[in-house]
């Protein structure tokens, strides 16, 4: 990835990973794009018995993954996904990384070409806290979840849940499932309307297919 992704607080991260793991059918082939130090891949190998691969931009992250016994290549999601053949994986995962890519649309399209399914998780910029911070302070929000100032953030393409749903429409991706997690890492009811997800979801996880 272009830069280390914004990692939410630890307990929330676990929930986020568990939500992803739940979407993955056991024994499948999985590519984790922007896999960091390999936490998610390790979880998926342990709990879902997947055959996992990763792409990570930082040398440190790749080394940590290789030492863990993961198959990870150093690369950039924006430029290197084109190297993978069609249908190479059952799932291509982009966890907390979408907002740090230069071309999110291109990345999502490539994911759906390489994988039968794509799983994307990202921080929701439409969350009420973020909206409140912008409204009341008039400045770009800095929170525990999004700790960077605007000028040094790796996150150059924030979006809201509704923005992401619109992108899925544009690239003709079918949303198979969506999960929104609130600030406490709890799931927001499936029956809640989009506006409710967009307001109260702090993070979202989407399972997409072509």
């Amino acid at each position: 990835m272009n830069a280390p992704s914004t990692q939410p607080p630890r307990n929330v991260a676990r929930v986020d990973h568990l939500a992803i793991a739940e979407l993955v059918t056991p024994g499948t082939r999985v590519l984790d794009v922007g896999c960091g130090d390999g936490q998610l891949l390790t979880l998926l190998e342990a709990t879902r018995g997947i055959d996992g691969r990763g792409i990570e931009i930082s040398q440190k992250g790749v080394n940590e993954c290789v030492a863990r016994g993961l198959s990870v290549i150093q690369g950039d999601a924006d430029t290197d996904l084109v190297d993978y053949p069609d249908d190479a994986f059952d799932y291509v995962i982009l966890s907390q990384t979408l907002q740090a890519t230069r071309r999110p649309r291109h990345v999502v399209e490539q994911m759906l070409r390489i994988g039968q399914k794509a799983i994307v998780s990202f921080p929701n910029f439409g969350n009420w806290r973020i909206r409140g911070l912008i409204t009341f302070t008039g400045r770009m929000p800095v929170t525990g979840n999004l700790p960077h100032t605007w000028y040094d953030t790796p996150n150059i393409h924030f979006c809201t849940i509704r923005d992401f749903v619109a992108l899925c429409d544009e690239v003709h991706a079918k949303i198979e499932r969506g999960i929104a997690l609130n600030a406490h890492g709890q799931r927001i009811g499936l029956n809640a309307p989009w506006w409710f997800w967009n307001l109260f979801g702090q993070q979202a996880v989407f399972l997409l297919s072509r």
């Binding site: 691969r53 993954c65 990870v72 190297d83 993978y84």
Partner: peptide
């Protein structure tokens, strides 16, 4: 990758 091999790659 195209051969679905298990591969790691590091550019130092």
């Amino acid at each position: 990758n195209a051969a679905a091999a298990s591969v790691s790659f590091v550019e130092i």
